[in-house]
Design a protein around this nucleic acid. Sequence first.
RNA 1: GGGCCUGUAGCUCAGCUUGGUUAGAGCGCACGCCUGAUAAGCGUGAGGUCGGUAGUUCGAGUCUACCCAGGCCCA
Length: 940
Amino acid sequence: MSVDYKSTVYLPKTDFPMKAGLSSKEPELLKHWGKLDLYNRQREQSNGKDKFVLHDGPPYANGNLHIGHALNKILKDVITRCQQMLGKDANYVPGWDCHGLPIEWKIEEKYRKMGADKDAVPPVQFRRECREFAEHWIDVQRDEFKRLGIIGDWDNPYTTMTYEAEAQIVAELGKFLLNGSLYRGAKPVFWSVVEKTALAEAEVEYHDHTSNTIFVSFQIQEATTNDIVKGASIIIWTTTPWTIPGNRGIAYSARDEYVRLRVTALGENSLLRIGEEIIIAKSLIDKVTAECAITEYQILLEFVGGELEGTICSHPFNGQGYEFEVPLLAGDFVDMETGSGFVHIAPGHGFDDWELGIKHGLSVPETVLGDGLFAEHVPLFGGNHVFKADVLVIEKLKEAGCLLAAGKIQHSYPHSWRSKAPLIFRNTPQWFISMEINHLREKALNAIEETAFFPSSGKRRLAGMIETRPDWCVSRQRAWGVPITVFVDKETGEVLRDATVMERIVDAIRKEGADAWFASDPSRFLGDKFRAENYEQVMDILDVWFDSGSTHSFVLENRDDLDWPASLYLEGSDQHRGWFHSSLLESCGTRGRAPFDAVLTHGFVMAEDGQKMSKSLGNITAPQEVVEQNGADILRLWVVGSDYSEDMRIGPEIVKYHTDIYRRLRNTLRYILGNLHGFGDAERLEIAEMPELERWVLHRITELDGMLRQACNNFEFHSLFNELHSFCTVDLSAFYFDIRKDSLYCDRVDAIKRRAVRTILDELFKCLTAWLAPFICFTAEEAWLTRFPGEDESVHLRLFPDIPENWRNNALAEKWQNIRNLRRVVTGALEVERAEKRIGSSLQAHPIVYTSKTYIDEMADLDCAEIVITSDVTMIDDPAPLKAFVLEDIDDVSVVSEIAKGNKCARCYKILPEVGTILGYEMACGRCADAVARYLAPSE
RNA sequence: GGGCCUGUAGCUCAGCUUGGUUAGAGCGCACGCCUGAUAAGCGUGAGGUCGGUAGUUCGAGUCUACCCAGGCCCA
């Protein structure tokens, strides 16, 4: 009777499904981790170990996550998990940024919709609604982050709006106050005279607007460096005539060409005089002469702007209360497109003006009040409204003989988003942290030198900004934020610097939140020493960047489970100007060093064509959709497989690519699991007893382990990811597994070779599940639990396996590289046979390999047929016949493929002469007959 | 306009530091095999003017300049 050989073959068996079903499986695993309390178990387990603190840059709590959030948090998670598995205590505490304008807007919007005036709402109520709004979005984002598999202290995250945080932020500001770095200065801001309020940049809309334009001459008073300009006047052009009373300087372009020209003929209505000499930019001669009706002129001199250094003009209203010097200053914002090549500088009426003015010590006059009226102290114009001042200014200029031309221009101009009224730049009192008083700039630059940057270009980028930035303006005229808790002496304007007062404020805020500042009587803070009626209480709030720049103090320093400074800050490259920047300044100002040892930046996420994602282009990839349709592990694989030091791309094709990669990794795990069915310690084999091929696998494990540890140290995973994938595909699936399938399926259970293979599979399983755990955290867990089920089990409680050094065997690696080359020639030869329809399966072949003695000696102890998966192989040290198959790049191997002789073993499919000769097993080969005779069913 | 960065097969990445055979890998694609990993597995093959132009050099993906395209941050 015929034997049912099929039932005696040891086929893979596992509950680990081929189809992942991640969208339903992942939530189950999240539940498992919740029950297990994985985060706290990790903490217990790594208690006392070296800490790795990745300090979370807080996202803003005002909407659902986008793909950039997903990239950022997954990257942080991968790094945290890797450090944890390297044996550190990698405790990740997520946080949220809660104060600021966008949330304030949402609440304002709500009131507007109800037809209520937001200004009528008591500040404390308004602030409470902002707080509730932030709380809502923290909950939403927390769930979305958790769904991505991010592990961290989600039950105790930090936020910038807890009372504790607000108190600490105030305490940090107090340090700048007490050491003299914080001062009151002035800065122009967008101002609406209709609403009598400052507007943030984001509240400004640009619309077309018709402005008056004027060309004005400024008489040269003295020229210190040379006399090429003496006796002439500088011509400026402006679209805001009303700013002339605020003029304190003139900017030129140091590298552009200027001319001195003499007017020789004039048009009818020209306001100039024949013989007048003026200085303008060379490239703008035509425009200026046309506008000013200069019909003929003579160029007297040409020179570069730089030569104007040191020139002093007088103000057009000199003699009428404007008796001050108007210096010429080089400004890189001066353009040669419009005007005269000179920009009049009114430090209270423009950002460029202000910055240039501060740099050169110009005064910043307060000319216009909040309601749009010129201050009484402004000569000629006091009490006039700014919107009506243009005409007046033009008239007075004409009287002074300084007006060369007046016109109109239609251009894009800032307007209020609420009232739609045109805005002005108005000088306002603001609070600043000095970059110089306590050497903050120098300290910050030194700190940058001490910091490791990934990629290294980040160092230059950040240093460049610190080198040139002006003092830090930390005040905002807003409601939703941490107050600038400062008192100013009404008489002297002196800032009150008193440690005890500051302590009282901090204590109150710690107990009652920042509202305490707005709701308390000032005497509560001032105590007996200072009288409340003598002091003005500042009602500005802090720049939110000061909040987030202080997180290192109220998170890293104040929490026992963390350490200061952080091991790593990791954010998008925009944070060079944002969080890295503000954290660095805050920490250098208060602690003299950076709050981080290293800074890692990642790029931005683009659509598949490399363009920015936008609703209008319809090329947005939402993380929630990928998670729902493909699974979080796919998104995580995308992060790990991409080079995030540059901009990355995502879209349907890229998601599909990573799904394919995922499938291969999953099937590799599945095959290992299937073939480890019933494996136990008794079956394990010592390395010394293993065949070479198994020892080669162990060597490959040492190589990958080395790459893994290097990748963790450099926070660079995409190369490792490629190596891991290629290991699973090329080394395992196409080579090792393919070869060992025969032994696994057909050898006796107690065969040495089969035991060796299963021991290797066990090692591979332990390594791959650990190595993949930080990347595809769900699937690695699923695989682990399939083999080691239990409510207390988790792959994430493991460390990366320690790989014994004696697994490394470079000589063996080199030898097997040669063997694989030989194998390539054989498979190539078989492919020809297949095309000619002489064989189908490779087991039908018996290749004759013509090769060198070196090869033959090298393979003397090996079963070549087994390695190339044929039924037999003959190796000959002879010259190859002409018809033999060769590969171009392998010169000492030629193959002639013959057909294997014998009958097919019904069990192992090999074609061998012995098949049919074994009594009782006429359909089987010797090995299989023996295996069947001693068949042991796989244990259940 | 300025600072920092990027551009290599349809896709994800190597190679560039230190110039030197015919620019590599995986995925995808095409074709074939297997039917005992089966919505799997194996093999073979086709795909690249290395963003463009000039230059340095005996020789440039690699070095230099300019240009084009894209990104982040400023103006």
